[in-house]
Design a protein around this nucleic acid. Structure first.
Lengths: 342, 342
DNA sequence: TATTAACGCGAAAACGATTTCGTAACTATT
DNA sequence: AATAGTTACGAAATCGTTTTCGCGTTAATA
């Protein structure tokens, strides 16, 4: 077992000082060509690589980014993560992921673990627990220590930091407009209870688009499901007691459930009823018929978030001037499939 | 901006030495109760938390685990990662993920980045590129430095280290046996070209199970698709020209495609034809009818891998004795849904 | 009263690197 | 020959901890 070699050991072997070795390896002008060659050759031979931890301590910069997401077994977050990882890696950063599991407590613990020197900054999407509790002190404390945070998708106005958002309202508007263009008037919305800012924005877009088209909003055509364990009966009841010719769903799962159920009744998609679902994922692609979806471009979102964070991290502040934060919007686009009329 | 406080600053404020502060915070017997209380109160007030980097340098242990996987936007790897992250986090470890993107070069670069002190050990699944190249020197070098590696799913016998595998052959056998128990005899296999060891193992299991049941193997009942962009016509042709009453698919996507197509023909699932698909993922769960699946238990796999790694990392070797490595098999189990008869 | 023991604390080394500053030994200049 | 200027290197501080060892003060023992 040949442990990694250190500057000290090289110095001893070559009977020079540690400083000389360090400088020689950096090709410093200060060192004679002879010595440099000797040192570099020896270092290469023993495959010397500087110890990251020591460098981190010295530089007070880890070149690590902390990513905290509610769930990793989730297509959207995975996609965003991919974008972050790709961009960060290109600039020599590594990514430490922690999963908050939608829990406020875990989110806090994870952030505290990483904030003590393990990372230079955070990219995160708030857990459901945090959003429900509406408590952001853990974020506040970290930004106050000068550690930058970039919030994406599930954000809050309570914290002053860079943000990357999806234009959920706009996305919903686009979807509803498509329905209307196809001649649909009885447009339903299947959404979650109002925990998530995301769902709220989508609902707002839904209402706005209908209002703009002078279509009266029938509150009965809005179904709010309490969680992801979809209650078949609720859906059944919903479609039985309402005239509906188009459905916007705030996520794939709701859409798939509704489509399956509606088809069982013998209603045809898209002839009798159209569907659009939020977040283009694997379910939309392989549904039967394919589910027309509002794509969220997670990879791009991750890249943008990583770019913003790294800029903040590497920016040497002139100390005095106020920090300035931006919010970037990633546009969602519609992916047309069989569940709507082309 | 209140930067994190250090021992040095506490020491200066309280007019004691750094050592005293350090010991006081560790509740050392050496320090008087008075001093301890004073120090601890002050530390709590200023929310002192030791700097992880400094501790890592001192201990020569980072409490970080490096995970290198070919792809993160992939349900199985995500699931395994979840298991790793969960277990590791419970023991106070953080996880740094790098995606090799199926590329040998990226795998090497990622490992080298992390091997210079950033992590205490690796958990990884080999990239397609590495498997094709059959070059494992990067792994060898790292193990020679005394950094432990745990390989999962895509492994190699070339490297002597802990491994976690899935019993793909056994899984296929179980699936075929279920068909047979349901009285099916004309059992088809839909698989990939023989690039992946995984598919090969599953095919072997398929053949073995049929042979054991004295069912002759009809090679026409084996469909090999060249890639994931499924060719509808090939499937069409396959089901038209063969009598089939049960289908084992080596992945969800093939299964979903086949099921959709078969249903379009008016064939009923599971009455006329049964389906079982490999790797229980989101598609299986939300298919209509639900797809009976061979679950791979990725989370468990991740947990086992993390457990094995951490044991190696924390084990203080008696230096002289030989290291001993294990290979654990994670059994796949059948998840019954609507695509088979119960 | 003299010796030993216990107590409470600080100095310093160590982890592995970078970087500033000082200086000995030459070389060049006048 | 005396001074100034290079050249090539080393000592030491620093990043933030932990930990060993030493030492002065007080209390306990003979």
């Amino acid at each position: 077992m040949k442990k990694k070699i250190t500057l000290k050991q090289i110095a001893k072997e070559l009977e020079v000082s540690i400083s000389t070795v360090s400088k020689a390896l950096k090709n410093s002008e200060e060192i004679s060509t002879d010595t440099k060659e000797k040192v570099q050759a020896f270092a290469k031979l023993h495959n010397y690589k500087p110890n990251n931890v020591a460098i981190s301590l010295k530089n007070k910069r880890t070149k690590n980014i902390g990513v905290i997401i509610p769930d990793i077994v989730h297509h959207f977050f995975t996609t965003v993560f991919r974008g972050i990882e790709q961009y960060a890696n290109k600039l020599g950063y590594n990514v430490i992921v922690c999963v908050s599991d939608e829990s406020f407590d875990k989110e806090v613990i994870n952030m505290e673990m990483l904030a003590n020197g393990s990372v230079d900054g955070f990219i995160m999407s708030l857990s459901a627990g945090t959003q429900r509790k509406n408590d952001f002190n853990h974020l506040k404390e970290i930004t106050e220590q000068g550690i930058p945070i970039v919030l994406f998708d599930r954000t809050t106005k309570e914290i002053n930091c860079d943000k990357v958002l999806i234009d959920d309202r706009e996305g919903a508007i686009k979807a509803v407009q498509k329905f209307i263009k196809n001649g649909r008037k009885k447009i339903a919305l299947v959404t979650t209870e109002n925990y998530f800012s995301v769902s709220n924005a989508r609902e707002a877009g839904y209402r706005e688009a209908l209002a703009n088209a002078d279509i009266e909003i029938d509150e009965h055509r809005i179904l709010k499901l309490p969680n992801m364990e979809v209650d078949e009966n609720a859906i059944h009841e919903f479609f039985n007691s309402n005239e509906i010719d188009a459905v916007l769903c705030v996520n794939e799962i709701f859409a798939i459930h509704c489509m399956n159920l509606v088809q069982k009744k013998g209603i045809r998609i898209p002839e009798d009823i159209s569907f659009i679902g939020f977040t283009d994922g694997i379910l939309s692609k392989y549904a039967n018929p394919g589910l027309t979806a509002m794509a969220q471009h997670g990879v791009e979102m991750g890249e943008v978030a990583a770019k913003m964070l790294i800029e903040k991290v590497e920016y040497v502040s002139d100390d005095e001037e106020e920090e300035t934060y931006q919010t970037k919007i990633i546009e969602s686009t519609i992916i047309e499939r069989g569940s709507t009329i082309n």
